[in-house]
Design a protein around this nucleic acid. Structure first.
Lengths: 337, 337
DNA sequence: CTCGGTCAGTAAAGCGGTTAACTTTTCTGT
DNA sequence: ACAGAAAAGTTAACCGCTTTACTGACCGAG
């Protein structure tokens, strides 16, 4: 292994000078810099990140904690991750995806081992044990999503409230009056998931404000459960003409279930999927109209916020909300008649 | 931060003894061990992984390189990752997912920075620039999948040959004689993907051996492309009664395309998806019959093989193949008549 | 001509562990 | 009872890099 010592010897300077040149941390004369750079080139020097981390007490690695309990990484999550990784790279950091069970103990392990400077938390629950642990151990972190009371914490999140309003505006704009909402139930991969709860309450309030009747359904996050939800919908509210779905997998089941019940989409029933991605929505037949989760932006902003904290630019919590964007598909249409 | 020094002082032993206790690297008397452990407990000591890595020249971190170009992480990939992470943990390692473009330069960066001890490569292409780079830099690595000539390299891979034979046995066992194969085309996320090419050639050979006519189709990895493939199938080989599909996303499109052409599945046409996961296959209506990708096993075995190499137990390349398992769905049936 | 002030560069003290070499004590077997 | 080995600890030399404090040289201002 080629070390700074070797480079220093060959360039006939002190090891400190080599450090200053590679890090630009102190001015070095052009002549010396050239000698050092040539020596590095000739020897094929690559600085040892571990040693650097130990000496500087910063690893320049940030971890994206993802809950290992989750069986499927949605297209949204992957986009999010990819965008976060790119942003981190641009800012001089390396982002790694760290699978962690929801149990807080593991969080401490990784964190206090000093292998990462900071943590990005995704799939945050309203009451998240991991968050408590991170606060306790004073690990710098930012959340994608937010806890029930996120004051003082840094987060970026989907603007569920405005997204829900926009979704309802769209559906009522088409002429729908009987609009149901299907979400995940308590057994979901992420219990007490903020967007679910916020969407439900906004939906309730908005329907009320518009003088419409709220019909709330919930089911597990599987196509099978979505199928059963179709049955339930027809039984409980047979005159429904549109469904908003915040449950990617169930959306497929709902669609299939309706077809089996002889209800055509979008002819008899419109379906609007919320918080999904176009790639996944395209699997359905007809392709789902959807409100696209702003995964790229969330990833980028999450990393930016975290790095700001790591570099001391942002002391107090930074809050950002981003709306979902509308994406036209073939699963929505004006109601019959 | 609590260091070993602090612990040593409190337990009234040398710092080396503390190291020996926490690592079990040299025998320590029960009495001393107890004192040390109590001191650690009282002080809340957590060993600094970075310092440990520097001193021992091993980080105990292994990286799973995943190609950032891939837009969707299939259910299979996530399972694979989860299983790999768990295995690594059991063996005393931490596994991180490292997004890397296919470009070899980044591989070198991460690797030579000394942040990881070894690398697990997934989505290996038949001619993979990343592999060359890893060989050059003498980074220990194992592959999931294999290059064209993997001699001397360590890998675990899907046994495409036997899986294809089993799939054909199953379909011919149902009575099918006219069986087509749909795979990804050259524009796929992973060009020159081993399983694709091996499946195609085995399919050709096996069909020939059984005196049947081979019908090979290929299309992009999207539902839309699968839809067009349905048209092509009906035009090129209208008497086909079964299709094997090695292209998860296109399988959905194929199914929908056939429905739009008035061809019922499995009544008029059987579909067998290969290398997918039950969770994803269940999205389809009818749920797809499939050969399940052995993701869990591949993940586990890949990590085991890599760790064997890291700990010097396995010098020369280790090769393992695993077959896909059959999973009954509702998209296959005997041919009509 | 001298004084304070940049500018380049160096020496050396860590960062928090690991581990080889060595000392002392306690068992063994004969 | 005694040599030799094993067991239990200790000391100190790193691992490769960062960073503070310090040394001269050089420069313009008073």
């Amino acid at each position: 292994m080629v070390t700074m010592r070797d480079v220093a010897k060959r360039a006939d300077v002190s090891i400190a000078t080599v450090s200053f040149t590679v890090n630009n941390s102190k001015s070095v004369s052009p002549a010396t810099r050239a000698r050092v750079e040539q020596a590095m080139e000739e020897l094929g020097f690559r600085r040892n990140m571990v040693a650097r981390a130990l000496a500087s007490r910063r690893t320049r690695v940030i971890a994206l904690l993802y809950p290992a309990l989750q069986q499927r990484l949605s297209g949204t999550a992957v986009k999010f991750f990819t965008s976060a990784a790119k942003t981190a790279g641009d800012l001089g950091y390396t982002l790694v995806l760290w699978p962690v069970s929801n149990d807080a103990e593991q969080v401490t392990q990784l964190t206090s081992g000093g292998l990462v400077d900071g943590v990005l938390l995704m799939q945050v629950q309203l009451d998240d044990p991991r968050v408590d642990r991170l606060v306790e151990t004073e690990t710098p972190f930012a959340m994608i999503g937010r806890t029930r009371d996120p004051s003082g914490l840094t987060f970026v999140d989907i603007d569920s409230e405005n997204t829900t309003v926009a979704a309802l505006d769209y559906l009522t704009g088409l002429g729908h009056r009987r609009i149901a909402l299907l979400t995940s139930d308590g057994d979901s991969a992420v219990p007490h998931f903020g967007p679910t709860e916020r969407t439900r309450s906004t939906y309730r309030a908005e329907m009320d404000r518009r003088g419409l009747d709220a019909v709330l359904l919930e089911c597990g996050e599987t196509p099978q459960a979505g199928r059963l939800a179709a049955d339930e919908l027809c039984e409980r509210a047979p005159d429904t003409t549109a469904v908003m779905v915040l449950n990617e997998n169930a959306a497929f089941g709902l669609l299939n279930g309706l077809r089996h019940l002889g209800i055509s989409v979008p002819g008899d029933m419109s379906i609007l999927s919320v918080g999904s991605s176009p790639e996944v929505a395209a699997i359905a037949d007809p392709a789902l109209t959807l409100m696209v989760s702003p995964a790229d932006e969330l990833g980028r902003m999450g990393v930016e916020a975290l790095v700001d904290r790591l570099e001391g630019r942002e002391e107090r919590g930074n809050h950002t909300l981003v709306m979902c964007a509308f994406h036209e598909g073939s699963s929505t249409a004006p109601p019959r008649g």
